[in-house]
Simulated assay, not measured.
Amino acid sequence: MAYDAVFVSTAWLAERLDAPDIVVVDGSWYLPAQNRDAAAEYAERRIPGAVRFDIDAVKDSASDLPHMLPRPEAFAAAVGALGIGDGMRIVVYDGPGLFSAPRVRWTFKTCGARDVVILEGGFAAWEKENRPIEHGAPRARAARSFTARLDHSAVATADDVARALDAGSAQIIDARPADRFRGEAAEPRPGVRSGHMPGALNVQATALVADGRFKDAPALAAAFADAGTDLDRPVITSCGSGVTAAILATALETIGKPVRALYDGSWSEWGASDRPIATGPAKPR
């Protein structure tokens, strides 16, 4: 899929802010170490008319894992209440430019939204270009009807990952920092072991992004190739909790190599279980 089928520019959005079939979604989410409050930032300033989608609120409430994909009926109710309905073009952004927006886009698409794009450069670019910013209480949107249809094929379970590793049917690519992948740094979540799935590869999500945007296509392809990825073979992406795994998936999509699935539970699930782990550099099977 072409880059321009995944991203829209700030200029493109600025020209269409009042279009009735477009809804802008602030999908900002931050790690504790980033010391940022997504809800407070949205309340203070946002792209005019934007609604806020919180992955920690719209999630599978039956799971004790962080921000797991919500059930279709819960997703439909949540986004319908935000004024997002069938047939709308959804433009997602986040504060830094390219961090949580890919996860929000993946969530929408996996739950049945057909037309979801990411604002290139995010709110940081929008603000830097002195484009209009809305302050004060957000504008309420009229509720709409959203038909959710879960694409099960886009979501990998721990068993799916284990089978893929055993059979060599897909490459598992982990987006976490290299020191956590190698088991040299502690995981931020209590009770989660350090290391990686035996046979997994490591492409740090941060290595793909510069100034809130993806690097160019050759640089993206090189980052995956340097990690030992065969771009012509199926890929399942993973990370700490399913957020930066979506950055990997989106990067591959933009260079025409869509992934098989995203491991939603990611290392938060695998590392807290009794499944096998490895430490040190990646040793592909």
Rank of each mutant, 00 (worst) to 15 (best):
R105G: 05
W106T: 01
W106S: 02
T107K: 02
F108K: 04
K109H: 06
K109R: 14
T110W: 01
C111M: 15
G112S: 08
G112M: 02
G112Y: 03
G112W: 08
R114E: 15
D115W: 04
D115N: 11
V116A: 06
V117D: 03
V117E: 01
I118L: 14
L119D: 00
L119T: 00
E120G: 08
G121I: 05
G121A: 03
G121E: 00
F123T: 05
A124P: 01
A125G: 07
E127A: 15
K128P: 01
E129M: 11
E129L: 13
E129P: 01
N130T: 12
I133E: 12
I133Q: 13
I133A: 12
I133V: 15
I133S: 05
E134M: 05
E134V: 02
E134A: 14
H135K: 14
H135A: 10
A137V: 14
A137R: 14
A137I: 09
A137C: 01
A137K: 14
P138T: 01
R139I: 13
R141H: 15
A143C: 09
A143G: 09
A143R: 15
R144Y: 06
R144Q: 15
R144V: 06
S145P: 02
S145A: 15
T147A: 12
T147D: 08
L150P: 00
D151K: 12
H152P: 00
H152K: 15
S153P: 01
S153E: 13
A154R: 14
V155Q: 04
A158P: 04
V161P: 10
R163Y: 03
R163W: 09
D166L: 13
A167M: 10
S169C: 09
S169V: 10
A170H: 07
A170S: 09
I172P: 03
I172C: 02
I172E: 03
I173H: 09
D174F: 08
A175E: 01
P177Y: 00
